[in-house]
Design a protein around this nucleic acid. Structure first.
Lengths: 138, 138
DNA sequence: CTTAATGCAAAGGCTTTGCAGAGAC
DNA sequence: GTCTCTGCAAAGCCTTTGCATTAAG
């Protein structure tokens, strides 16, 4: 499903995270937030360039890295081969199909993680990832 | 810390998982289980070849993959760049330092994950990974 | 002798980097 | 004019693969 997400929305989001909203960054942001689902860098690259726009691979990688670093999106490490980028930054978890490499969301509403130990001194928590890995029975 | 872990222990472990215990496989198994900590394939490769033994990179990768597939060790996907292999297959979770890439264990004894949704039909659970990501304050 | 495992080197996929050119203010 | 961003291509890193060689029973 494609949620309405305008250039103005993207610009606002970028500003909110202290990122200079250039043409390419806005395009990349829109691709992610319109669809609202995590994708790999390569997916973003392909989609951005689908409708004749031109954004280089380097810019896609750099921008995704920047967005993640600034907290506008979230990196999801679940696949041994590639990183997913998730526009959903609210607490939620992931279901990972080891057969297909497909990643889907689990709402965090009902999920509770308790009993975690305290962090090392001077450390700031970046997030708690819960990844449920499954495989289709053959 | 290096726990006593003999060739015979390694052979027994391999047998238990239906793996033919060849010289190289025993060496690799010992490296992991003596130290008892997760390491990347490259670490294993370096250690195995440290004391003049000769095991090729391909064999290290193949063996680690085989051990993981057979359930003798566990793959940990926490670093965007490389896969860790963990000789500890009992339930436990991980603390990941985004700055250094260092991975440490969290006992699962006190950790509880509740409220997970049911799996898709015909799926078998491979595991639930909890990864606590932190970063040193600068 | 037959089957399985190993080693080497090359290839592959994802990501990062260096640097020149283009764009923004 | 200065500073930032972009694009291209090359390089980097981890991992896999193909195939000939070697070991095992």
């Amino acid at each position: 499903m494609v949620t309405p997400y305008t250039d103005a929305d993207a610009v606002a989001l970028l500003h909110r995270h202290g990122i200079n909203p250039t043409t390419q960054r806005v395009m990349i942001t829109r691709v992610l937030f319109e669809r609202g689902v995590h994708m790999a860098a390569d997916d973003v690259f392909r989609i951005v360039n689908a409708d004749d726009n031109q954004v280089s691979k380097a810019t896609v990688y750099n921008t995704l890295g920047l967005l993640a670093e600034k907290g506008a999106i979230r990196q999801v490490i679940a696949d041994p081969v590639k990183v997913f980028y998730d526009p959903n930054t609210s607490p939620h978890h992931h279901l990972y199909d080891e057969g297909t490499g497909e990643l889907t969301d689990i709402d965090a509403i009902d999920v509770n993680v308790t009993g975690l130990p305290p962090l090392p001194l001077g450390a700031s928590l970046q997030g708690v990832d819960v990844i449920v890995r499954f495989r289709q029975k053959k």
